[in-house]
Design a protein around this nucleic acid. Structure first.
Lengths: 332, 332
DNA sequence: CTGAAAGCGCTTACAG
DNA sequence: CTGAAAGCGCTTACAG
């Protein structure tokens, strides 16, 4: 593999000159330029990012820690991150944690050893992970939180106002005349409490009672029976607010199997607006999260932080959701 | 940021000894061990992967070039790759090409500059990309092709026998008594021709005519009208073999909107078995691809290649598909 | 068991 | 405009 020495020798100049040519900083005479260019091509020379990283103290790599790539939501966020980073000349190293605290801490450590210039961290948060984030922050590593927070640490972050989104989802249902509205959550996503607060507050504001019987949890334990449980409630719900689209789609399917028509007999609204939301039958009414924008914003915050370090004040960006009305909700 | 020099000084040994301790090769006295360990912890020392990479000439990073992360299929494959690589102590740098030849070539070049120890390359292939692959192969970089081939280059590869899968899909439909079977493809996926060949051969073997009128293309241009076009054929199809699940699901939705019952009036079979296939209504009969296994196998081939380089014979692994019968297909 | 030294392939002042 | 030299933080024989 050709090195800068090979190029220098073949072009009859010093490595310093080749370096200046490569980085387009400092002067290089036209004559030298041409010879170097020719040598680079003849040798198929590609400068070593590793050596560069060592001497320049920046790798132009960033770490992205995600809970799961096999989830319709994450890849779109990652896409947004990569688009921005790619443009800025950075590579993204993606690490899966499976939502496990131990793996999160390990991912952070490994990425740090790799000397990434910064990191973007997605949920969920764990104690081990948080401790590691704190440690890295102390070491001066730029980090941006995406969709999660870590009280007490002055870190940049981007979040979606899911509370507001939940309120909007509820207002949509309320405006359609529903008064018995179920909330379906997922045991693993307990932390996403903004949605539940929005559900509660919207109900309260509408002067409706908060009935714990209308709170359901879709766990593997119960899988496939949420709807059954709903129907057993006296004065059963006429509408369902699901904490995410995946769950909403499962409920739609359960309804279909029992001959319950959506939205005629039951209205269902989801959350996220995953790619499939528009393709199910009936197309799902949902609260869209700005997935790509989330990623892009996080990337931009990180870039700014990498370039300015401590001199920049901490930024916390809050993005808003959007109600997408499709066919799964109707007047009661 | 602490370096190996800081650790050595604090522990009262030379950096060579610290290095030996870190890599657990060579002897280090018990006394030295303890002092070094203490110094490492006190300083929060994490050895620089960059410096390591430069001197050891291996970065323990691999590149993964994918067409698109926002596609139910890819993330699962990537997952399989990461699981294996992670275990072997490698990081995966993922690069998106959007299926664009120019971006593919660029991705390869950038990854090479980063001195990844090897790469796994997913479809589609492009001329620019192929030229770059050839160039890198000449430079001695280990590369594994996943789900694609590049005739003429002796590269390791893993592929799924989609031809066989297509034949099985067709045999399933034929066994149900269908004789007029449509094939729906996607303009962007023209290259995935194994499926089409399987469709044709199965028909031929069954002694059925090959009717070009039954070949449809789902392109954005026609989007939403495939079914309409199908119904205009005289003696219209009673079953549809779709080149992938996404398309199959779109067709199901179109059918639903026109009041055509699946599978009563029309049987539909997909390909891939994406996560959602089981969640649509009716649950989709499909040909499952071993997504995670594809990734794992590619990772294992690459690992072997990295360790043994040229001494290993070229390996070409062919994985098989599996028919998953659900509810979208029925007797004619 | 341990240290001194060279080397990995670049960048970056510093002279000239 | 250009070269010589130091340095980035490790690994790896080589002596001892």
């Amino acid at each position: 593999m050709a090195t800068i020495y090979d190029v220098a020798r073949q072009a009859g100049v010093s490595i310093g000159t080749v370096s200046r040519f490569l980085n387009q900083n400092g002067y290089v005479s036209e004559a030298a330029r041409e010879r170097i260019q020719a040598a680079v091509e003849a040798l198929g020379f590609a400068p070593s990012g590793v050596a560069r990283g060592l001497s320049s103290k920046q790798t132009r790599m960033i770490g992205v820690v995600v809970p799961d790539l096999v989830n319709l939501f994450i890849p779109e966020v990652v896409r947004g991150i990569q688009d921005v980073m790619d443009n800025a000349g950075y590579c993204a190293v993606i690490y899966n944690t499976d939502g496990l605290g131990a793996r999160e801490a390990r991912a952070l450590k490994l990425l740090y050893e790799r000397r990434v210039d910064g990191m973007i961290l997605l949920p969920p948060s764990s104690e081990e992970g948080n401790a590691q984030i704190e440690e890295l922050h102390r070491q001066g590593l730029p980090q941006v939180l995406l969709g999660r927070d870590l009280p007490g640490l002055p870190l940049d972050s981007v979040t979606v106002d899911t509370y507001r989104g939940a309120v909007e989802a509820m207002q949509h249902l309320l405006a359609l005349g529903h008064t018995r509205i179920a909330f379906v959550s997922d045991r693993r996503l307990k932390r996403l409490s903004g949605r539940l607060s929005g559900y509660r507050d919207a109900l309260e504001q509408a002067g409706l009672p908060l009935d714990d019987e209308l709170l359901f949890e879709m766990s593997s334990m119960y899988k496939g029976t949420v709807l059954d449980r709903m129907l057993q409630v006296q004065d059963p719900p006429t509408a369902v607010f699901s904490m995410n689209d995946m769950i909403a789609i499962d409920v739609i399917q359960e309804a279909y199997q029992r001959g319950i028509k959506v939205p005629d007999h039951l209205s269902i609204i989801g959350f996220d607006d995953i790619t499939f939301a528009a393709s199910v039958q009936p197309p799902l009414t949902t609260i869209a999260q700005p997935k790509s924008l989330l990623g892009q914003t996080a990337a931009e915050l990180l870039l700014a932080r990498i370039e300015q370090k401590a001199s920049l004040p901490v930024q916390e960006v809050l993005l808003s959701c959007q109600l997408i009305v499709r066919m799964s909700t109707a007047r009661r």
